[in-house]
């Protein structure tokens, strides 16, 4: 028999860590969605295809501003010492992914605005009457549009990957100890972004194109999920116990049904049929992808906090005796 009793009962820490509730998964989801939209709009701006992909390259950056602000507000709600939030911006801590993220978020805003200025949608032209002068300035400079595109691709990738590295840097929680979390969150952000544009864009051609892109992202995301689980399941005992939370433990159903089944595989099948004109395009598949992306963040954040390095010393002490 092995039994461990602690007298500690600290709020948010015991019996298992639960410092991060709904705010962090919501932020990670919205951050990932915006990251995906930035990469996609940046790509079309770089390629000069912004006229044929008007929603992705012009409207999505504006929606990105709103989503990112909502996400950052959720992040703000999570802070326990809110009146010192400004301390993030009086320093740079190179070993802290959260410090990197705070500064990345700050430069993401002007990059999104610049993307929207390349080919401003009517709403922006109405709201900001002088916007066309910036548009003309961008058109007048060769390379300016490509530069804005590259900036959005780079910052979008950084934003998407940092949301995963943020968790994987916390070594005390074995479930998060995987560098694949960075690419996984970026791929999930890309699939969510493509699904979102597929859902709301007006041009049929653009929606069709994004649905095809979404299928690619979903396949890659599935591969990343499989590698994530394999990596954990083949590491140390603490990591195998963390993987067990997803392989028979309390998060198994939510992860395999909610994330992998309903969030990746089934929408992938539906969209493969749709792009091959076997079934009509419908909002069902993209809504499932968006839901899957959200549930993925909830599962990883919650299960990660439940994972831990074994608290029992018995084996170690017996080995020493």
């Amino acid at each position: 028999m092995r039994e461990l009793i602690l007298t500690r009962q600290n709020h948010l820490v015991d019996p298992t860590l639960h410092v991060w509730a709904w705010q962090i998964p919501i932020y990670l989801f919205l951050g990932g969605l915006v990251a995906g939209m930035m990469v996609l709009s940046g790509l079309f701006l770089w390629q000069g295809r912004h006229q044929e992909r008007p929603f992705t390259s012009s409207v999505a950056p504006l929606i990105g501003l709103v989503f990112l602000s909502l996400g950052m507000f959720a992040l703000f709600l999570d802070l326990e010492h809110k009146r010192y939030t400004w301390r993030l911006y009086t320093t740079f801590q190179p070993t802290s992914p959260m410090s990197w993220g705070a500064w990345i978020l700050l430069v993401v805003y002007p990059a999104l605005v610049a993307a929207a200025f390349v080919h401003p949608p009517k709403l922006l032209r109405d709201l900001v009457p002088g916007v066309m002068q910036y548009t003309r300035a961008i058109e007048a400079r060769t390379g300016a549009r490509r530069m804005i595109g590259a900036l959005n691709i780079g910052l979008g990738a950084a934003l998407g990957i940092y949301t995963g590295i943020l968790l994987s840097a916390l070594g005390a929680r074995p479930l998060w100890n995987s560098a694949i979390l960075g690419p996984l969150f970026l791929l999930s952000g890309l699939s969510s972004a493509a699904a979102f544009i597929h859902l709301v864009a007006r041009h049929v051609d653009e929606r069709e194109g994004l649905a095809r892109a979404d299928n690619l992202f979903l396949v890659l995301e599935l591969a990343a999920i499989v590698m994530f689980v394999i990596g954990l399941a083949n590491a140390t005992e603490a990591h195998r116990q963390a993987a067990a939370l997803l392989l028979g433990g309390s998060y198994t159903a939510l992860f395999w049904v909610g994330v992998v089944g309903l969030g990746v595989v089934i929408p992938l099948v539906i969209q493969l049929l749709a792009v091959n004109h076997r079934v009509q395009h419908s909002p069902v598949a993209p809504l499932m992808v968006l839901g899957g992306g959200l549930v993925l963040r909830f599962v990883i954040v919650s299960a990660g906090q439940e994972s831990r390095w074994a608290a029992l010393l018995a084996d170690l002490v017996n080995a020493l005796a």
Partner: peptide, 23 residues
């Protein structure tokens, strides 16, 4: 200087940290 982001609480293998009621 602490903003109460709780990254340190999550990073501690000993769960030795907690959020003081003052934040």
């Amino acid at each position: 200087v602490c903003i109460g982001c709780k990254a340190c609480v999550a990073s501690c293998p000993y769960d030795a940290r907690f959020v003081h009621p003052e934040g």
